[in-house]
Computed example of a mutant assay.
Amino acid sequence: MATKRPAQPIFTRSSWLKPSSKRVRGLRDRLRSHYGRPVAAPHGRPLDELVLTVLSQSTSDRNRDVAYLRLRARLETWERVRDAPLSEVESAIQPGGLHRQKSVRIKNILHALGEPLDLAWLAHVPVGEGRDHLTALPGVGRKTAACVLLFALGQPDVPVDTHVSRVATRLGLLRPGAGFVEMHDGLLDLTPRGAHLELHVNLLRHGRRICHAQRPRCEVCPLRRACPQIGVAVR
Rank of each mutant, 00 (worst) to 15 (best):
L86F: 02
L86K: 05
L86M: 08
V89T: 08
A92I: 11
I93Q: 01
I93V: 05
P95Q: 13
P95H: 13
P95G: 13
L98F: 14
H99L: 03
H99V: 03
Q101M: 08
K102V: 09
V104A: 03
V104Y: 00
I106Y: 03
K107A: 04
K107D: 07
N108K: 13
I109H: 02
A112N: 04
E115Q: 12
D118A: 04
D118P: 13
A120H: 10
L122R: 02
L122V: 04
A123T: 00
H124N: 12
V125T: 05
P126W: 08
P126V: 06
G128N: 03
G128Q: 05
G128V: 01
G130A: 02
G130F: 06
R131L: 13
D132Q: 14
H133V: 12
H133C: 06
L134E: 02
T135P: 08
L137D: 05
P138Q: 07
P138N: 08
G139A: 07
V140Y: 06
G141Y: 06
G141M: 09
A146G: 13
A146H: 12
V148M: 05
L149F: 11
A152S: 15
L153K: 11
L153H: 09
L153M: 13
G154L: 13
Q155V: 10
V158R: 10
V158P: 15
P159S: 15
P159Y: 15
V160T: 12
A168M: 11
T169F: 13
L171E: 04
L171I: 06
G172T: 09
L174Q: 06
R175I: 11
R175S: 14
G177C: 13
A178T: 12
G179T: 09
G179S: 11
G179A: 11
V181Y: 01
H184E: 05
D185C: 13
G186P: 01
G186I: 07
G186Y: 11
L187P: 02
L188R: 15
D189L: 13
P192C: 05
P192K: 12
R193G: 06
R193W: 14
G194Q: 07
G194P: 00
A195W: 11
H196I: 07
L197C: 01
E198Y: 00
L199D: 09
V201S: 01
N202V: 05
L203F: 09
L203G: 05
L204F: 13
L204C: 04
L204Y: 11
L204M: 11
L204Q: 05
R205D: 06
H206T: 00
H206G: 00
H206P: 00
R208F: 00
R208S: 02
I210G: 12
I210T: 15
H212A: 10
H212E: 04
H212F: 04
H212W: 05
A213T: 07
A213I: 01
A213D: 07
A213N: 04
Q214K: 08
Q214I: 11
